[in-house]
Design a protein around this nucleic acid. Structure first.
Length: 424
RNA sequence: GGAGAGGUGGGUGAGUGGCUUAAACCAAUAGUUUGCUAAACUGUCGUACGGGUUAAACUGUACCGGGGGUUCGAAUCCCCCCCUCUCCGCCA
């Protein structure tokens, strides 16, 4: 959520930025935000003044009664009666302005950073880097959904039996590969300076609002209604919410947390032709990295996080590309996002495996995550997060790209975490 | 699941309708004193939204788990909800 004070600071910049998002009538949207806020302020001023009078008179009543001046007290009581009607109508106006303002602000996405290219969709994303040589597979190469059956390592039918479609069962070397990759990603994160966190995989309502899954994306989360808990769609939710209503000082910064969790997504309405096999699941595993920085450092951190993700992909010897997302393809809350995609040779498609974003103050504003300087000055912090990495599509790419006549060759980087070198 | 006790600032903790401008202590922080350290003493020390100012100073309102209510006036009284702890039950 944008701050009104930040909009006021540079209205033109906000308008230009939001125009890049292809929102129509940005000017009138911002104008109404500012005018509602003006009305809110005016209402509050009058309300506070009236309340001050009531407080003062109440004190006088107390003093009069102590002196035994009942008549004086009654007179004062009458004057308060008039103020009270003013107050109650001002209160309902204030509430109305606040609600209207909040509803407008909830609908406004984050302002893209200046470096974000303009565009409308995936085709306008800027390719920042691509692996030179894409692998070509031998005759008879199989897509991963056939390979997992051939080697009996991931079973969708069994998952369907015990849970439903999109909940795979990993078996034997398939299960061990999952475990190895989680350990590999966590170890690499630790080496990169992250503290490991193991959070709950359900969160309460307040946490859902904190990172913005609620109220918009309620339908995308599994909801345990008996206890009003939500299954997390990503570790971003619990790990970022650790810092909800928190004030950090210089000594606490930067924050670098990493955590592995399963992730649950209902993916309502998004099943189609390209979501076979591991490409889209209701439950999958992911290691997430989260950083919190002072504003002046957040873009350097974004680059650092990207480097970390790239190093993982290189160690896994996967062909990949890095995209700077255009304004039209970026998430609602992000100011700048890089996507990483691995090349799936048998499908001849790029698969998104990581998304690294700087949210600037957009999340921090809802979270009330702030920094207090030595001088006592308060400011919102910048939050960043990224996948490092999501497993299923990495598994798909490894299976497809590394298939040989003898079996599937495990990348060297994973060998310390496994007791086999080949799936056969 | 049953019964009971609680929820007050960074922490401990006082406060049963106006004496509170939320005491006191601890922690933190700045200073004084001191050969150094320690101690002592003095000051500062919440957040949000406003007004005010070039910026400050200054100033209004709200906040004692959350939401309502009673009252001229609520941390305090009433109602609903949430959470924590203890004991019992069940249990990986």
């Amino acid at each position: 959520m944008l701050q009104v004070s930040a909009i006021r600071e540079d209205v033109e910049k906000v308008i230009q930025g939001l125009k890049k998002r292809n929102i129509k009538d940005v000017e009138s949207l911002i104008t109404s935000v500012l005018s509602i806020d003006d009305q809110r302020k005016l209402t509050q001023k009058n309300l506070d003044d009236d309340k001050a009078k009531v407080n003062a008179n109440s004190k006088l009543i107390g003093e009069s009664l102590k002196k035994g001046d009942v008549q004086g007290a009654d007179k004062l009581k009458d004057s308060i009666g008039t103020l009270k009607t003013l107050i109650s109508s001002a209160e309902s106006n204030l509430l109305r302005f606040e609600t209207e303002l909040k509803e407008l602000l909830y609908k406004i996405p984050n302002v893209p950073d200046e470096k974000v290219p303009s565009g409308f969709g995936a085709d306008d994303n800027q390719v920042v880097f691509t692996t030179d040589l894409l692998p070509t597979l031998p005759e008879g190469a199989l897509p991963h959904w056939d390979l997992i059956k051939k080697y009996d390592i991931i079973d969708f039918d069994l998952g369907t039996k015990i849970a439903g479609a999109g909940f795979p069962v990993y078996k034997g070397k398939g299960a061990k590969l999952q475990r190895a990759m989680i350990n590999f990603f966590l170890q690499e994160a630790e080496n990169a300076g992250y503290r490991e966190i193991q959070p709950p995989i359900v969160v309460n309502e307040a946490s859902g609002y904190g990172t913005g899954q609620l109220p918009d994306k309620e339908g995308q989360m599994y909801h345990a209604t008996a206890d009003n808990l939500y299954l997390i769609p990503t570790a971003e939710v619990p790990i970022t919410n650790l810092y909800r209503d928190v004030i950090l000082t210089d000594e606490d910064l930067p924050v670098k947390n990493a955590g592995y969790t399963p992730c649950f997504r209902r993916e309502a309405g998004s099943w189609g032709a390209h979501v076979r096999g591991l490409n889209r699941l209701h439950q999958f595993d992911k290691v997430e990295v989260v950083q919190i920085h002072k504003p002046e450092n957040s873009y350097a951190a974004l680059e650092e996080m990207c480097n970390h993700v790239e190093s993982l992909l290189r160690k896994l010897e996967l062909p990949y590309r890095k995209l700077l997302l255009c304004s039209g393809d970026m998430g609602f809350t992000s100011a700048m996002t890089y996507d990483f995609e691995v090349y799936s040779a048998a499908q001849q498609r790029w698969l998104e495996v990581s998304s690294v974003s700087n949210f600037e103050t957009f999340q921090a504003n809802r979270l009330k995550l702030r920094h207090k300087s030595k001088e006592g000055k308060m400011q919102l912090l910048h939050t960043l997060n990224g996948s490092a990495l999501a497993l299923p599509r990495i598994v798909a790419a490894i299976l497809e790209n590394n298939q040989t006549a003898e079996g599937i060759v495990i990348p060297k980087a994973l060998l310390p975490y496994l007791n086999f070198e080949m799936i056969n």
